[in-house]
């Protein structure tokens, strides 16, 4: 089940426009056991100099999943989601984002390659997150597809 590299790079992923919700940030804080009130209590956030609840460092990854079929691009490439592992993730930050902000998330696949004779395939996805045309953060994901039936 080899990924078609040209097809992967040519794949156009639609941008997503997301308005960050306070309730969602509180839910995220709860799920990760965040005890710092800045991430769940607007008054605490404002006392710390924020206009509203800040988007925590890794939630930028979640913004991209706010689409009806977030893994649809894997389907289009014939990739079984059960074989997918997250290999690497990086973020570069330019400014903080807050609840109430409307952000535009633009992902694109920038590279695809295989290793171990096709037993492992890799997709590199880069995502720009902007607010009013200004870059807020950049994210890069390495997605690994395991093909255990391929013997290296």
């Amino acid at each position: 089940m080899a990924i078609d590299v040209d097809k992967a790079k040519a794949l156009r992923l639609a941008p997503v426009t997301v308005t960050v919700e306070r309730g969602r940030l509180r839910f995220f804080a709860k799920a990760i056991g965040e005890s710092d009130a800045v991430y769940s209590d607007v008054t605490a956030a404002q006392r710390a100099g924020h206009p509203d609840l800040p988007v925590p460092p890794t939630f930028f990854f979640s913004l991209e999943l706010e689409r009806p079929d977030p893994f649809g691009y894997l389907d289009k490439l014939g990739i079984d989601l059960r074989r997918v592992l997250h290999g690497e993730q990086s973020f570069t930050y330019h400014s903080l984002a807050y609840a109430g902000d409307t952000l535009i998330v633009r992902p694109r696949i920038v590279d695809a390659f295989s290793k171990k004779g096709g037993a492992m395939e890799f997709l590199i996805k880069q995502t720009d997150i902007t607010r009013d045309g200004e870059l807020v953060a950049e994210a890069t994901s390495t997605i690994i597809v395991r093909n255990p039936e391929v013997k290296a």
Partner: peptide, 30 residues
């Protein structure tokens, strides 16, 4: 577990130590 759950925990380690606005970049390998 989701890899991003561990990355979020590590993010808590960071923001518990410096204000989030000080973080310029953050990357991990799973």
């Amino acid at each position: 577990a989701h890899g991003m759950l561990s990355m979020a925990y590590l993010g808590r380690l960071l923001t518990g130590w410096v204000p989030q606005r000080a973080i310029r970049s953050y990357r991990v390998r799973f």
